[in-house]
């Protein structure tokens, strides 16, 4: 397990990270969320040993990360950085060597990974002759060729076409299934909902939440919504049953169908609302309690003082 315990980091007068703590289970995809400037990059740099924390500790399997071999980690930063004039396969092999592989193994892994990531054309093409997406593949392969135990990915899907996004998603999940711990820093909350069971939300250098996604949603239970679609015309008087609390009328999904959406703050009983709808005798097309979307939770956490 990767554990951050009360870490803090200051740059001059600016406190970048304050008393941050969270734990990442081995072999999981862990979401690191937060607005720009929240302290995510500083946290990542501390996890990777590039910066030392002013206070607190970061451990991997109970041992300080500063004492871990560098090959424990792999990193793909948000800012794409590659040696433009190097051949792609040499680039990946170089990083393999820098992470401790011998030359022959590094070259073999480079070839395997570029194949796996479906880099088109010759693998010895200069990096600057590749498209942006393919350069991203070279960078991804450079981060994983040495088979790291902890892989930190910062916005790995941005700039990729949908086909390659799926390829990266699949590869990331395969790595996690194989035991690699993935720390995924992203603003793409839809993917976090898809891939992460645990997340940490950072805002203004402080961890606002760390734990399971379900637990996070439960904390923001009031953001759940009841969505009802009934067969009715807009002016059907039977829709008047729901005056208190009043629903939001959303765009009708089809002719002769009305969509009513209730927020469910504390004190509002969804069962009573459902009973009210059923009591109208209108034909039901949809009845669903929608969990709080991470996007709204994120906005609330990010803007909370």
């Amino acid at each position: 397990m990767l554990r951050l315990d009360g870490i803090a980091r200051r740059f001059g007068d600016r406190q970048a990270v304050v008393d941050a703590s969270f734990a990442v289970s081995e072999g999981s995809v862990f979401g690191l969320l937060g607005p720009n400037g929240a302290g995510k990059t500083t946290t990542i740099r501390m996890v990777l040993g590039m910066l030392g924390p002013d206070a607190g500790s970061i451990t991997w399997h109970g041992r300080p990360v500063s004492g871990e071999p560098r090959s424990t980690f792999g990193y793909m930063p948000e800012e794409r950085g590659v040696y433009p004039r190097m051949p792609a396969d040499e680039h990946v092999a170089l990083f393999g060597e820098l992470y401790g592989l011998d030359r022959t193994t590094a070259r073999a892994r480079a070839s395997t990974w570029l194949e796996r990531l479906e880099l088109p054309g010759d693998h010895d093409a200069r990096v600057d002759t590749l498209s942006k997406g393919n350069q991203q593949k070279v960078q991804f392969a450079s981060a994983v060729a040495h088979d790291p135990k902890v892989l930190v990915l910062d916005e790995p899907f941005s700039g990729l076409d949908p086909v390659n996004q799926v390829l990266f998603e699949r590869t990331m999940l395969e790595l996690a299934e194989a035991g690699t711990t993935v720390l995924l820093s992203t603003h793409d909350l839809d993917r976090v909902e898809l891939f992460c069971r645990e997340v940490a939300m950072i805002a203004s250098g402080t961890v606002r939440f760390a734990g399971g996604v379900d637990e996070l949603r439960a904390r923001h239970d009031d953001l759940r919504r009841l969505v009802v679609e009934v067969v009715a015309e807009p002016d059907d008087p039977r829709l008047g049953f729901a005056d208190a609390p009043a629903p939001v009328r959303e765009e009708p999904p089809a002719a002769g169908v009305q969509r009513l959406v209730w927020e469910l703050p504390p004190g509002v009983d969804p069962d009573a609302l459902v009973a009210g709808v059923v009591g109208t005798g209108l034909g039901l097309r949809r009845l669903e309690i929608v969990e709080a979307p991470l996007r709204e939770i994120f906005l609330r956490e990010a803007t909370a003082s």
Binding site: G49, R70, P77
Partner: peptide, 14 residues
């Protein structure tokens, strides 16, 4: 190397 943003990746390895 800094402006090409390679340094940040390198400093994890070396």
């Amino acid at each position: 190397e800094k402006s090409a943003r390679v340094t940040e990746t390198l400093l994890v390895a070396v």
